[in-house]
């Protein structure tokens, strides 16, 4: 059973300081971090991924992850910007993550795009491929920054159902609005230590 713990975590980025975060997330939980833009939703994900510095401790399965390199941390971070390796095909992008990503992409109805070079896709399609790659990764923690941005309502619904079906992972998602059916909700506006 995977477990992600944040103990007294605070993050300073530019004029923004957020914290203190004290949470324990368990396997099969999906957590929505919501709040207005500029309040630190992405900042929190970047800190958990280890891309930016933070105070406090983050434990994955009881082990501190602070000194782990991004590729060895067991945490996958999909940025808000729909970004893929443009010069290779959609299928080759998915294969970087693994076979599960390919299966998820098929489930999302992306099979007809597999042969296309990634740069030919719309931002919405890129986003779906990117999220498929993240959800299909072997990491126990998946961080999805604004996964519902750029995509249609219909695809958002499908994506939400895939996220809810995903087993064995802890999934943290950011959104500027509240979306129903997540296990836990974090209102980022309540964690403003300093926001100038």
């Amino acid at each position: 059973m995977h477990k992600l713990e944040l103990k007294n975590v605070s993050i300073k980025r530019g004029n923004l300081t957020i914290g203190l975060f004290n949470f324990t997330f368990k396997e099969n939980e999906s957590i929505l971090i919501y709040g207005p833009n500029g309040y630190g939703k992405t900042t929190l994900l970047l800190a958990i991924a280890g891309i930016i510095k933070y105070e406090g401790d983050i434990f994955l399965d009881e082990k501190p992850v602070k000194n782990y390199a991004l590729e060895k941390r067991g945490i996958t971070y999909a940025p808000a910007k729909p970004t893929l390796i443009n010069r290779i095909s959609v299928l080759d992008n998915l294969k970087i993550s693994g076979n599960s990503a390919v299966e998820i992409a098929v489930e999302m109805g992306l099979k007809s795009y597999f042969g296309q070079k990634a740069y030919t896709l719309s931002d919405g399609m890129k986003k779906l491929v990117q999220v498929s790659m993240a959800l299909g990764s072997s990491a126990p923690v998946i961080l999805l920054d604004e996964p519902f941005a750029f995509i249609s309502e219909e695809k958002s619904f499908e994506l939400k159902s895939i996220i809810n079906k995903t087993q064995g992972k802890i999934i943290l998602i950011t959104s500027h609005e509240i979306i129903q059916n997540f296990s836990e909700y974090i209102d980022i506006s309540k964690y403003q230590l300093r926001n100038v």
């Binding site: 996958t76 940025p79 910007k81 390796i85 970087i96 993550s97 993240a134």
Partner: peptide, 20 residues
Amino acid sequence: ELEYFIQSLGKDRYFIFEKV
């Protein structure tokens, strides 16, 4: 951001340099 994304999928810097 693409580099971070691919790296967080478990790929090291050499992979990123060569394939990204």
